[in-house]
Amino acid sequence: MATQHSRAAARFMMAPAVFVLLVWMLVPLSLTLIFAFKRFMPLRGDRIESGWDFVTFFPSLDWVGFDNFTRFVSSSAFWPSVVTTLVIVGGVLAISIVFGVLLAMLLDQPMWAQGFVRILVIAPFFVMPTVSALVWKNMFMDPTNGLFAHLWRAFGADPVVWLSDVPTFSIVLIVSWQWLPFATLILLTAIQSLDSEQLEAAEMDGAGPVSRFAFITLPHLSRAITIVILIQTIFLLGVFAEIFVTTGGAFGTRTLTYLIYQRVLESQNVGLGSAGGVYAIILANIVAIFLMRIVGKNLDK
């Protein structure tokens, strides 16, 4: 499509942005990599002498080889945190895609005050994660004053203590609430781009509403769904604020990100945390490569 010339021009114009992004990523990334191979526990007296130490690989800190890496994975908290991460990512993806498709189809119907309803549906996406998690925690899930507790009592049931009885589910719920609008928005645009003549043709070909959805609408949405999965996974692997302000990592809601945070800030072991960070980078990249392949295959069609 593009000519040789316009491609060169495009590269040239993208160069500054790419450069800034690289620096932005490379500095923290290389710091993490270096610290992962060092003993660095500030409370035990490990010190960085000056900012220039970065250039000489921090001579005041001892090299410890792969110690931090083995210690990080052999800790009893590691595998549970991986499982929790996958459960949360998977749960949020499932909820946001299933309900995203349903909501998108609903919003695609002509209805009264369409624009306003759409804005309402999109709104949660603009609420900061910390705020929305606190709203959920105090307004809905509080076992004595929360709306859910009132609702349960209205039906004569004992209120659920959400954040300690079903902590992982609660967090999935909170995070889904934030990401559902994103999925809905992308899926809605995709649904709107579906040629109505295709649906009419299918109708004339004898396909009922379910078949039309399964054979026409869903395949049409497949590309949008993969994109939603790709983007959301990458963001969801780093979910932090929602856990921080609700359970604080207790009751089995400690994700990989949260574990790294605890290693660095609560146990003040920068080396160990950095090693965890390197694992997280590897995990995220595996996911990304995997997903890029799917998307690439989908985009080729």
Binding site: E197, Q198, E200, A201, M204, S222
Partner: peptide, 15 residues
């Protein structure tokens, strides 16, 4: 029992 051919052909692109 009628079959229609549309101006845009309305073929199913993923099949």
């Amino acid at each position: 029992r009628l079959a229609m051919v549309f101006q845009s052909y309305a073929l199913y692109p993923h099949m």
